[in-house]
Design a protein around this nucleic acid. Sequence first.
RNA 1: GGCGCCGUACCCAAGUGGUAAGGGAGAGGUCUGCAAAACCUUUAUGCGGUGGUUCGAAUCCACUCGGCGCCUCCA
Length: 483
Amino acid sequence: MALHLYNTLSKKRELFQPLRDKEVGMYVCGPTVYGHSHLGHAKSYVSFDVIVRYLRYSGYRVRYVQNITDVGHLLGDTDDGEDRLVKQSKAEQKHPMEVADEYTRSYFEDMDALGVLRPDISPRATGHITEQIEIIKTLLQKGLAYEGNGSVYFDVRKFHAYGKLSGRVLEEMESGKRVEIKSEKRNPEDFALWKKATPEHVMRWPSPWSVGFPGWHIECSAMSMKYLGEGFDIHGGGLENQFPHHECEIAQSEGATGKPFVKYWLHNNMVTVDGQKMGKSLGNFTTLKDAFKRWEPEVVRFFILQSHYRSTLDFSNEAVDGAGRGLARLRQTFQQLAGRIQTAPEGNEPHTISLDTYRSEFCKAMDDDFNTPQAIAVLFELGKEINGLIASGKPFGRGSLQEIDEVRKELASGVLGILEETIAPQSLNGTSEADLLGLIVEIRKDIRAQKLWGISDKIRDGLQKLGIVIEDTKEGAQWKKVT
RNA sequence: GGCGCCGUACCCAAGUGGUAAGGGAGAGGUCUGCAAAACCUUUAUGCGGUGGUUCGAAUCCACUCGGCGCCUCCA
């Protein structure tokens, strides 16, 4: 089965066929950097990270571009709206650019922790003002935009395909219901390409029309087309940006170039809390920095991947705790496998696991619009079989056991970004510590041989308090660290 | 008001025409000095409700109840 993905533009699952053979250009709307990232951001960027990883695993050369929005856009489309970056900079008594930098670093720190691979290009909106102005000039030349009082607006009525992504029809939109009609605008649906700056607006640039700043939507058109070409394969983003943001991107880009902008639109769904959207406006969000105090970032990542990217994911402590226990079990399986590999005899005494079946089942799930929950289920099935194999106590050859671990490296680490690249058999953290614990386990073994259970249990309980769990198995005691 | 989505066991969550994945939690068992882990078994004749189409529906259609998203910045 070849890769199929759900295209929001056609509202159908489509066979993935990139514009240029094995090359894929992909753009995802990045964060506006005026606050710490929350679980909603994590869902989005982890999802797209796995999509990029899987495309690469499938043999595509991907150029992944994700912007950083550091221009202060207005709340609303009115002149009295507040600039979010300016607002935050006042609160922190910093220059808006300091704020942008602070939260850009914070963003990457969180994403790195989550195992999200860095995009190939992370362009900043403020670094591409010239490109944005160029597009606006073209739109004016083509008569798709007009100027009024130093600001420039896109004339939505001139672009007949407007609404093709979101399914909106101009006539049916109740105009001006939530947006104040601006006198400069010909029609309430028109959106700003360039805004003349008010005196208090610090982030400002010269342009042919006024000293001002670009509209929100134009940055993504400018940066995506600069690095990926006028038409490219995949554009991703949050569902809430489908309208107006992505609809406007299409209008500007296709209006300016006359070419199809994006072939596949991918939209990820939201994290909810008690059924309600987690978002900045509702204030019901959990920042990643707070989440990481309770859970390892990998657990958060795993929790996210246990639901489909196009489904909402309901967040609760109980649900993430549950995901954490599941991941711990899976990790334990591979830790024990690693232990076996160390002590296994040379040679290839074969195991009975059909690794190719697991590989193909995993890919079948991922080929079906990146069904990560299904893919994880495949890994659990594999884990179950590995556990059975370990429990059987049969002496499999080292080479054949390593083959099994290869699957973990490939699918779990490589594609899903869970279960780190190398798993130490007993999570050892420096040799001296491991030697020390080995000695304790050895002494305890002698104590147990004398059936001095009290002392034996005292050692085990004491170690547990230090975060080290002793497990007595048929093959002797094993220890592992718990966090 | 317009556009759209969702409702699957105690919790999270796959499944879009062929007879309910997976994880967590719970129960029983094997093993064990005990514990933990692991392994085996088990937990929805049922997929919000009511009709309909079909040999067959969680899946398609209609109606209905409940929840949510977008239309203002938001991943």
